[in-house]
Each structure stands twice: as structure tokens, then as C-alpha cells.
Design a protein around this nucleic acid. Structure first.
Lengths: 234, 234
DNA sequence: GCAAAAGTGTTCTATGTACACCCATGA
DNA sequence: TCATGGGTGTACATAGAACACTTTTGC
């Protein structure tokens, strides 16, 4: 046990939205989708057998963000549309054996990608608001990541990171509703989104639905998803 | 040079407000105070002789925030009224010799405290918007800290961390004006602050001024300075 | 034609902003 | 009494919330 140099690690909270099962009219479902995240099972002490956030050491020639992205790729074979540093956790007692400082990132992936995601004996997806007791302080970390996600959803355009190239405004609204856990007025939501100019209407419509086919939109690439200020790019 | 384990360090951006010199009516001054921060001179390579943010290694039995507070105390003999983690900087090339990951905090101290602050050959205060070329990526870090401070000033109550126990609403407004670098309407500012209930009027007034003595207020302790979500306390 | 989602219009309220105006004190 | 910052009143602009209403499709 080395008391002088804390071990440094990177972990990542990876969020995806998964559509809920078909809802009957009298079901208790409040939104069309739920937040999910992948966890890995620890295969050694401490906390052997418990579920934990994917993570690991930082390579000699990769930046912190690179390490998080590699992390994401290795555990889920996914790349993310949004990756941001969350926080550095470094209380003395967060790991029972050795002193560990974890720099945690959070990422958003698209559901169609998440479908292809690896799942196996030691990687499993969980509903974000119904997690088991995790290793280390990882329950706290996920809670904080959820808080950041919900906050940022209200003043940024990160919702788009959950969607594909083309989407309807109802789909976009359902992303907001699922993350914020409250219904939004479709009429007002439409106007608010349109007034930001963050989406561009296409000529296409989404056919195959039961009713009037909604117009498809695409993201206005001249907007960044979020304004993180004068941070260096990586 | 060890390629496998990056060195871990904590640095702190310490902000204080210093009142500007008496302003003549036709002076170009736009606000009554300016942001200052203390820097330390590097006494060895790399960047020997350059100014840098105070910082150092993390003790075995202190959390990251503790390390930042100790840091602050050692370089300025001050304790801060507000201390928050800023960001972890970890690009590969930010230090020429060895790989260093810096977890940076930012702090606010009161001007009356800052008066007592240590200053010497190797510690000096600089105006935040007029810094020399600093060691490492510290110019970038200060810019980001300024961006965070200005952002947070708009939706939090951190301005109070710059003031003493009792203050007038004009003093509070001058804090906002100095940080945000724009004049605010005194009438509207007063109403906005009062509507948040973050301040409580006292019976006292500030005598000795040239004109009508303004009422003194104190901070409403039932409000936190900022809502940083479900983060662990230290 | 009917049900239901897509999409538009209208009203009400809260909040921010500009600025006129009165008040109280020191010199 | 006058200059000046302290403090109040008021009117206008803008943004958001609530909700009635029209449109367009599948069945």
C-alpha cells in the first residue's frame, strides 16, 4: 500500500435511452423511454462480484478524454456522440485497499448503437434509476452524473446525442421527457425548439405511423451540442 | 521519465476583488473593483522563473479539496469562503518533462482577508485580465476559471463569498459589475436580489458616506452559495 | 367518417428592462 | 439648499405555460 502517490484511474458513466415496452392505455408508464447504462462485474477484490462503472488506468500517450473513449469502446464496442468530463473523485476512503483518484467522464450513445452493444457475463445494462449496490462510491457517481445530465438537458442541446440523423420533433420531445421525467406540452416544445434554430426541417416525413406523418428534422451542425467554455478540445 | 503512471497534482485559482483607485469623473474605469489572483514564481525547471498557479502533490490522508485548501493556506495564509473543483487537466504534452495530471480548484476570498495575504518575492497578485505568460497551460486554466466564475455568478449566489458579514446592496451590485464587466441597473438589481430572499435586511445602516446612508444586509444562511448537486461534501 | 397525432393560434402570466421620480443625508 | 446615491413606482417587451383549435393521415 503506497501512501505517497494515489493511483489515478478514469471511469465513464455511459447513458443510452431504451424505448419502453408497448404501453397499454392504463399502464403506469409516464414516458416512452428510460435511461440505461452499462456496468461491468468486478472480477477481483475489492468488491469482487459487484457491478461497477467501466474504467481503468490512463495510457502513457493518451489524454484523459482519450482514455474515457477507449474505455467506452472496450466495454461496449461503442463510440459516443457526446463525451464530457464529470468530476474527479478523490476522498481518502473511497477504495478500501489503496488510495485511488478517479477522473470520471460521462457519455451519451444512440439507442440504435446501444443495440449493437456488447453484453455478456461481465457486462450488463441496467436502468439508471434502479441500480443495485455498486462497488466503491459508484452509486454516488451515477447520481451526480444523472443530476448533470438533467441539468444540462435544460440549457443545452445534448438531447440530439441520443438520436439519429433524422428525427421527428415528437421523438426529440420524448428524449426530454424521459430524461427530465415530466411531460412537456407538444405545442410549446415545438416552438421553443424551432426558435433556437438548432434543428432544420427536411422535406421528408416519417411514414408508416398510424396517423398524420410527422416531418423529419436534422440537427443544425453550425451549433455545438453544448457550450463548455474555453476548454481545450481534448 | 515514467511513462506508466502520470504524476497527480492539485492547483488552485484564487480570486479576490480589489477596489480600484479613486475614480475621477472622466476616468475610463467601468467598475469599482477588479479581479486579482495570486501566483507563485517557479524556482526550478521546467518554466523556472515563470509565474504559475499555486499547487502541489496530494497528501496521503487528505482529499482533493483538502489539498486545494491547504495549498491556498500555504501560499496566501488565507482560508476561502468558497472552494469548488474546476476541472482535471491531463493532456499528454502539458508539461515538457513528465506526464502530469492536475486537478484544479477555484476559490473566492474576501478582500479584507486578501489584504492580509502573504506577498513576497515568490508570491505576487496579478489582475486576472492582465496576466503575463504563465508556466504550463496555466493561462488556459485561468481563462476557464474566469469563464466558470462569470457563468456561475449569473445563476448562483457566490458573489457573497467576496463580501463580509454585512454589506449594502450597492456593494453587492459592484461585485456583480466587476465580475461580469457590465453595469447593472441599481433599481432592478435591488428587486431581483430581494425577490430571491438570499439576503436579509438588518436594522443597521452604513454611516460615514457622503449621502443617504444605505441599509446593511446579511446573507440568508438558509441558502447555500451554489447548488452543486448531490456531490459528497468533501 | 372517425380517432389520434401533427401542427397553429391565442391568451394569460411571470420576468426582465428602461427610466421617471421621490427620499435622506453630508457638506 | 443642493448634489448625490438610496430607494420606489411604472410601463413596456419578451418568454413561457395553458389550452382551444385546425390539419392530415391510417384504418
Amino acid at each position: 500500500m503506497n501512501h505517497d502517490a494515489p493511483t489515478l484511474a478514469v471511469s465513464t458513466v455511459i447513458f443510452a435511452l431504451r424505448a419502453n415496452e408497448a404501453q397499454t392505455k392504463d399502464s403506469g408508464e409516464t414516458s416512452a423511454a428510460t435511461l440505461w447504462l452499462p456496468l461491468v462485474r468486478r472480477i477481483r477484490e475489492p468488491f469482487e462480484g459487484r457491478w461497477a462503472l467501466p474504467g481503468g488506468p490512463i495510457g502513457a500517450s493518451e489524454s484523459l478524454g482519450d482514455a474515457a473513449a477507449r474505455n467506452l469502446l472496450e466495454t461496449t464496442s461503442l463510440t459516443s456522440r457526446y463525451l464530457e468530463q464529470l468530476y474527479a473523485f478523490g476522498t481518502v476512503d473511497r477504495s478500501p485497499s489503496q488510495r485511488v483518484v478517479s477522473i470520471v467522464y460521462w457519455a451519451l450513445v444512440r439507442p440504435d448503437e446501444a443495440e449493437r452493444a456488447t453484453e455478456g457475463e461481465n457486462v450488463r445494462w441496467f436502468a439508471a434509476d434502479d441500480l443495485p449496490e455498486l462497488a466503491f462510491d459508484h452509486n454516488t457517481i451515477v447520481e451526480y452524473a444523472l443530476w448533470r445530465l438533467r441539468n444540462k438537458m435544460e440549457y443545452s442541446r445534448i438531447a440530439h446525442a441520443f438520436l439519429g440523423e433524422r428525427f421527428t420533433l415528437t421523438q426529440l420531445r420524448e428524449v426530454y421527457e424521459a430524461v427530465l421525467r415530466k411531460p412537456l406540452d407538444p405545442a410549446n416544445f415545438r416552438r421553443q425548439i424551432e426558435s433556437t434554430n438548432s434543428v432544420v426541417a427536411t422535406d421528408e416525413r416519417l411514414a408508416g405511423g398510424r396517423h398524420r406523418p410527422p416531418r423529419l428534422y436534422r440537427y443544425n451542425e453550425s451549433f455545438g451540442l453544448a457550450d463548455n467554455g474555453p476548454l481545450p478540445v481534448t
